[in-house]
Amino acid sequence: MAVPADNRVRVIGVSFALLCISLFLTEYSSRNPALTRLGSAAINEVVAPLQSGARAVSNFVSGVWKGYIALWGVRAENRKLRARLAALERENLLLNEFKIENKRLRELLDFKNSVKIDTVTADVIGFDATNWTAQISVNRGYRDGLKVGMPVVMGHIVVGQLSIVGPGSAKVLLASDHTSGIAALVQKSRARGILEGSGTALARLKYVVKQDRVRVGDRIITSGLDGVFPKGLFIGTIDSVNRDSEGLFQDIRVRLALNFNRLETVMVLTGDISRVDFSTVLSGEGHE
């Protein structure tokens, strides 16, 4: 399409003005996060019902996909047998889904029974629109008692914390997000630090002095000092330690225990976290 010169000037002028407005908005919203939260909660409320529906559809599609793809070779051998096998496969798939769901719910129930704290179970209905922020959307909101800052777990493992809460949906900032920070503790040596996400499965444990003895494989748990997460929740294990880095502190990489891409159900701790210590109930198992 031909763009006349005066139109070009107008487009550049308006774009520049809008870029300046964007910069102003970015600066303003960094000082006033309530504005972003309000707008985000509103837009998420619009999208959440669609996401819940789409989640169900995608679960169905992925179930059908998994069930049928394995059978293509069999069809070539015997169409009749394949039909029978497909029916059994579907049934098996369904049973497996029930089994997995049962296991997951049992874990959540065990967790609920093992600690005396109020919790709300929520289904994961969506992820972030861009690939640069590690967030998930869940189908519970302030109508269910959720508030910004509440910790979110899966069993005894840290998932993240609520960053935006709408009436019927909420966003969880995952522990892997590059803006996430969690007060953490090396379980064995009791060395304290801050676990910062990096946008990948490997987070960074910062501010652990070089004198502290930490080893690859050591377990990292929440220290409870940030006032967000109760003490003793499992975060991950140490993947690498570099004491040769400059400065006072060690360069420690932590492999997070959860694969956030596969989360389906999470639990929000809505009760008073200051009275809970998970160190006493921690099972010690990482989940994939």
């Binding site: 910069l23 970015t26 861009t130």
Partner: peptide
């Protein structure tokens, strides 16, 4: 997109 992400506006 900014509103959906809810990190910063702009």
């Amino acid at each position: 997109v900014d509103l959906y992400s809810g990190v910063l506006l702009g």
